[in-house]
Design a protein around this nucleic acid. Sequence first.
DNA 1: CTATATTTGTGCGTATGTATG
DNA 2: ACATACATACGCACAAATATA
Lengths: 84, 84
Amino acid sequence: MIMPARPLIDPQGATPVYRQVADVLRRRIASGELPPNRPVPSETQLEAEFEIARGTARKAIAVLREDGLVVTIPGRGTFVNPVD
Amino acid sequence: MIMPARPLIDPQGATPVYRQVADVLRRRIASGELPPNRPVPSETQLEAEFEIARGTARKAIAVLREDGLVVTIPGRGTFVNPVD
DNA sequence: CTATATTTGTGCGTATGTATG
DNA sequence: ACATACATACGCACAAATATA
């Protein structure tokens, strides 16, 4: 039996896992679940929640950063952008 | 001369270094060498003792924390759980 | 109150090895 | 060959919490 340990992610899907994770976070930002100036889950937390490798978590965050949705502050974390 | 700088750890072994370190600490807890409410060696100390990277030390501690053997307090340290 | 040291938290960058599509 | 992903491990820097001088 294959356990669907990752409800929101489809590892077999056409879109890469890191994009799927980025999309989930994007939705949380859009919905207000992750409000401006609040930290996005850390790489470690993303690892645990989505059961992904650290590199994949970082890649997901990088997507949001490139889209200007979040800003990363070294040593502190990644935060939802107040602008927009 | 090859220095056996890591007596208790085998970097080439089948089990990951962070698990081996966790096992060493687990034994120290079980034996009473690390009694309840006493601090486990800090990440820096584990780095020095086992000659590992800090990330590896953190992962070893994380294993013990997931097993409920220790509790970590930011800014203070990680302590052997009194329960059990 | 300030300053310093210690410890944990977080992130960045890199590297190696394995596996899959 | 290449991209994706996982797992492991190294090293470095900055931030925050705590404790102490």
